[in-house]
Amino acid sequence: MTGVSAILNGIFEPGLFTSEPVRVAVVVGGVVSLVSAVVGVFTVIRGQSFAGHSLGDLGTTGGSGAFLVGANPLWGFVAFALVGAGAMELFEARRPRQRDMATGIVLGAGLGIAALFLYLGTTRSNTTGATITILFGSMFVIRASMIPVFVLLSLSALAVVALLYRPLLLSAVSPDIAHARGVPVRTVGILYLLALAVAVSLSCVTIGAVLSTAVLIGPAAAALRLTKRPGLAITWAALIAVAVTWLGILLAYDSYYWPPARRGWPVSFFVVALVFVVYLLADLASRRKARRQSAHAVARREDRVGLPGDSDRTGPAGLGAR
């Protein structure tokens, strides 16, 4: 890491980036992508990628609002994401298509408000750059003093997910079975959405709305192509996310001398491209596995979590005559 800092000191003007922000970026980037990936596995299983992405955009709105009134952006991000999660839940959206609709409405309103905040921000303080910072984030705006707050919020999101692990899976596979077994499906859904809101707003404030969605969905979707076992998928997703983030940061440093502009390619591009490549590879691997399986004519039951939307979905048989 000191090597990286040394290179950085050579690259950027001394004083703008000392080794301190870099260390913060690596630590914070790692923590954020780890938490996002774990939460993301459930997001993908439950089919809530849109909500995950929208909460990020809503957090961004909050961030620009906080920027406007001069408050700490972190709280703006978290507060707006939580309010957004509550509003989505308010529309009583149980079926996927209704949920899609509710998410869309909340997102639309949030984006409108963001437009206003950004407009007011630009007319008052004349800092058009704020749009860029807010959309694409910056790993380097986090001050070291904020790290404890940050880690605490991350841990609380992780704790909620760990606590809800089994009910979450069950109600994702079949809300009816979960309900029949006494799982408070709606409460579990709300708590999960709130945890998602916290995780996403944290990643938005540090790595930006684009990367936030990328590390939330990409590693999890790739992991779920590789394995159907939730525990294993979480491990894979976390590994992929952290690897991709650190590699992205490294490549961004290396790219300083690259054409055409010779001032460094953005971190978000590298991370996103890596995530996309990993997903494509995982997709390829899972297809080859499927082809191998049909070549060997083995009739065996797979241990599966039965993701709705997968080719081998299974209905909740046996509950028909309850």
Binding site: V210, T213, A214, G218, F269, V275, G309
Partner: peptide, 18 residues
Amino acid sequence: RGRHDAVTALALVFMLGL
């Protein structure tokens, strides 16, 4: 093949990264 919403998210972030 994959989950539709997850794939949409991936395409979105890839394009935004570009």
